[in-house]
Amino acid sequence: MDTPLLKYVLGLADDNMVLSQRLTEWCSNGPTLEEDIALTNVALDILGRARMFYQYASVLDEQKRSEDDFAMCRSEREYTNLLIHELPIGDFAFTMARQWFLDEFSQLYFSALSHSKDETLAGIAAKCIKESGYHLVRSRNWICVLAEGTEESRRRLLAAIDELWGYRHELFETTQAESLLSGVAVNRADLKDTWMTNINDLSARLNIELPDKDWFVTGGRRGEHSEHLGPMLAEMQYLARCFPGAKW
């Protein structure tokens, strides 16, 4: 039986693993060479985050699973990432809109987590927040470029925000494991207002009307995923499953 702390750490690891895998799908497919390189570098930072959390999970795990076991040998129902991370990359506007939502969130989340009573989590957070600052500068820039670019880029950006809108709630939903970890886990609900203010501010500056119809999907932390996660994991885990224990 996984302890609340292990569940918590694995959730954070899975969020980053899945997002990183999605971003690497842009490798060699970016709109320009510079963007291609930038996106894959962001993916690498986020993979680094996933690894730090998996390594900590490995220390906490009674079954002594390794970081590779966690990433490569768990099925979609065992993955507990929040749904927004697993959505397909879509077009470039969709990728950058999601990145904007998540980079704004990461800044707030890691800032709060750096005050955790758990020293390892506080250390990981202090490391992540510095890198995340560069990610946020970049995604905000792209939102400006897309909003003020052409009619087509603006249309695509608005469509992306519309499609992502209902996935944001899950970022602020407290899980049972988190509610048992007072002082260790971040209280997600506390971040919601600041996050919304930051999103509103940039949107207002760019005359972006945020969707007025709201909807809500949830389930990622319970292993209830969209139809998109299974195929992504199948591709990601193919080599590790075919050749168990393979080494470079």
């Binding site: 510079e34 963007e35 390189i37 962001v42 560069y134």
Partner: peptide, 13 residues
């Protein structure tokens, strides 16, 4: 600035 991330994550272009 051409890109926030250059040849590696620690550099920009």
């Amino acid at each position: 600035l051409l890109s926030q991330f250059g040849s590696t994550a620690c550099k920009s272009l």
